[in-house]
Simulated scan of single mutants.
Amino acid sequence: MAEVETSSISTTDTELLSDVSSPERLSRWPPGIFPMPTFAYEVELKLREGNTAFERNGKCLQLSRDQKHDILEKLAATIYSFKAYPNDRELSKAAEALVSKHPCLKELGSETGWYGWKNSIKYKMGNYRTKLRRAGCQDVIVNAGKISRSNPENEPSHSNLKRPKRAEVNFLPDFPKGQDLASLERQRLEIIHEVQKTEKTLPLIDRMMQTTFALRRQEVVTNSPPVRDILERWPALCLESQVYAEFQRITNQNLPNIFYEELDRHTLRLMTLYRQRASKTGKTSDALADILRIHDLQDQQDVHTRHTTVLYALPVLLCEDVSGFFKTCRVEDSDEPDVGDAPVAILTAVSDNTEKPIHFNPIKISIVH
């Protein structure tokens, strides 16, 4: 059953918290205009003169090989700070932003004025990843060992690439400074020991989970273990606070805020859809009608009541069997609740014996795994 988070903290633990390494990427891909980096001083002067001349007579700037190299190198580093493997649309955004800020770099005869720049940035990103791979960067080393002249039997270069999913920002960070596989493994064992305590030192657990984040991501990305194996090796992920923290580490986003924001956005439309379906006949309609009837009988119908109704009714609408997922028990029962063979279940503890399809005022809700 999910652990109850009780915490204690000492002065020594507080001091340890200041020695936590931050993830490599602190920002997601910018939603608006791609931010231009500052180029070398000589290049900035050249671009300023070129932009002035372009405004006067529409003359494009001719760059030297070194100047173009500096622009592409700085752009590649900036792009990598957001994403190691940008897609075609994102590369186009970067090239468009470059020409928009420095119109003297427009390409004559090009429909967009920046298509050639996009291709140059694309190839430079490949070269930049190669440099990082040789330097030992785990984010790109994971995709090493592809086909080459010396290894013609290896995988094709574009097959089975391990890339971040859409929401992932910190996909495979390097180990923190001063840490190696052995030291991080020792901290992993310390986390297990700390989680098993009745009085857990939650800030200390958070500090060690932050430090061992790179090791955890290495295991997940390279080995793709089952969830059960991950939880056995990292039991702190059974704590609610660490579920939120891990989501923050990977995506740089607050999980509860995002979830409830999206839930609020769809609640009214879902409630309308439930009522429309409940007015018809059929097994699904009857189940929805029972849930809505209990919802309407509540003395106080606030945002929490609506959230509960929407979440309970959604699998019913989708005709999903969640009998093994949603479990109910009486809080007075001393026996361990029977959750069957379900790998994960939501256990709701209530104070009455009434069988209901939904409970709005439970005594306790736990995650059982």
Rank of each mutant, 00 (worst) to 15 (best):
S7A: 08
T11S: 14
L17V: 12
F34A: 03
Y41A: 15
Y41Q: 15
K46G: 04
D66L: 09
Q67C: 07
Q67D: 15
L72W: 04
K74C: 08
D88H: 12
R89W: 02
E90W: 03
V99F: 00
E111Y: 10
Y123L: 14
M125E: 00
R133W: 07
C137H: 10
D139F: 00
D139L: 04
S148I: 06
H158T: 14
V169P: 07
N170A: 04
K177N: 09
K177C: 02
G178D: 10
D180R: 09
D180I: 02
E185N: 08
R186G: 08
H193I: 08
E199M: 06
L204N: 03
Q210P: 00
L215A: 11
V221C: 07
S224C: 08
I230H: 01
L231I: 10
W234M: 04
W234D: 00
C238Y: 09
L239T: 03
N254P: 05
R265V: 04
T267A: 14
T272L: 05
S279D: 15
S285Y: 06
L292S: 06
H295Y: 15
D296S: 11
L297E: 13
Q301P: 06
D302F: 01
V303S: 12
V303A: 14
L314Y: 05
D321P: 09
F326I: 14
K327D: 05
V350Q: 05
N353S: 14
V368C: 12
